[in-house]
Simulated scan of single mutants.
Amino acid sequence: MSASVGNAGRAQIDWAGQPVHIEYQWVGSAAPGAPVLVFLHEGLGSVAMWRDFPARLCEAAGARGLMYSRPGYGRSTPRPAQERWTPRFMHRQAHEVLPALLQALQLDPAREPLWLFGHSDGGSIALLYAAAFPQALRGAIVLAPHIFVEDVSVTSIEQAREAYLETDLKQRLGRYHDDADSAFWGWNDIWLDPAFRSWNIEREIAAIRCPLLAVQGVDDEYGTLEQIRGIARAVPHTQLLELPDCGHSPHRDQPQAVIEAAARFIRAAG
C-alpha cells in the first residue's frame, strides 16, 4: 500500500493472528527527503483528537506527519468486549503493531528519516520502540510519557473512571471513537489493575541511541517530573523541557512552545 501526504484511510495489518484495520492520516510536506513524524496518541486519543497540532508542527519542521489510531481507538478495529489488556500492552504496540503498520504503509526506517512523536501512553510506546529498534529512528520526541506507575497517575485514572460512569464523558469520547467503551475500558482497566503497579521500563529505555527530547508540564495531573527526569538518568543524552502553567497535554496547553522546541530539535538533528 502506498501513502502520500493528504491521504487518509485504513491499513490492514495482521496482529495476534487476526486482521486488524488501522485508521491513518497524512499531513505536512511532500518534499523529497522530508523527515517523517509518526504521531502516537495518548491513552484515550485517536487521529481526530490531535486536531491541527500535527499539521502545525510539520509545517514548522518541514516534515510530513503520519497520525494513526491504535487498535481499539478512533476508526480502527475496536477491542473485543471480552478482551483485557495485560501489563505489556504498550510493549505489544511498540514491538508488534507499529512495525506492522510501517510495513503496511511501505515506510522503511532504513530509507526514511523516521521520527516518533508520542504523548502519554504514546510517549511510552515511542520510548519502547526506540529502545527495541535503536537503529531505526532519526529521533524521538515524547510528551508526558510514563516510565513507571505513580500514585498520582492512578488517582487521576480513578477519577476518569468516575467521570465516564457519572458524566457525559462517554458521549464526548463517542465523537472520536467508533466504540467509546473499547477505547475507555481497555485503557482504564489495565491502568487500575493491581498487576500494573509494578510496570517499569527504566532499564529498557537505556538502550535508546537516537536523539531524544522529553517534554512535561510542571502541573501534569497524571505524573510528576520524575518521569522525564528518570528518562534523562537512563538516557543521558536526552534533552528535557519542563513547561510551567502546563498540565498533562503540553501540545494543547502550550502548543507554540512545543512546536518551537520540537521543530528546533528536529532541525538540529539534521
Rank of each mutant, 00 (worst) to 15 (best):
M90R: 10
P109M: 03
S120L: 04
H95A: 14
F89A: 09
K170D: 08
S153T: 15
D178Q: 08
A94P: 07
L173I: 13
Q159K: 09
E150R: 08
W85T: 12
E96F: 06
F148G: 15
H95M: 07
E150V: 02
T77S: 11
G174K: 00
F184E: 06
V154A: 11
P113N: 06
G139F: 03
Q103D: 10
L127H: 02
H177C: 03
D179L: 01
E112A: 01
T167Y: 01
L137Q: 06
T77I: 04
K170T: 03
L127N: 03
S124M: 10
A130D: 03
A140S: 10
W185S: 02
D151W: 12
P99M: 02
E83S: 07
L102D: 05
E83K: 06
P78L: 00
I147L: 06
A136I: 07
L128I: 01
F148Y: 13
P80E: 15
V154Y: 04
E162I: 13
A100V: 07
F148K: 06
R161F: 11
Q82A: 15
Q106T: 12
G139V: 04
F148A: 09
E83G: 11
E162L: 10
P134D: 03
E166T: 11
R175V: 15
W85N: 12
R172K: 08
L116K: 04
Q135N: 12
E158H: 14
Q103V: 07
E158I: 15
S153G: 14
A132C: 04
P80I: 03
A130P: 01
T167S: 01
S153P: 13
R175A: 11
V142W: 00
E112W: 15
P134G: 03
F89E: 08
I157Y: 04
P145L: 00
V152H: 15
Y176K: 12
A130I: 04
I147A: 05
I157F: 13
M90A: 14
L143C: 12
L128R: 08
P145V: 00
A100C: 14
E162F: 09
A81E: 08
G118L: 08
S182D: 04
Q159D: 07
R111Q: 13
Q159P: 11
F148P: 06
K170V: 04
L98I: 01
R92M: 14
R111P: 12
Y176M: 05
A180M: 03
Q93L: 13
M90S: 08
A136D: 11
D151N: 12
A136E: 13
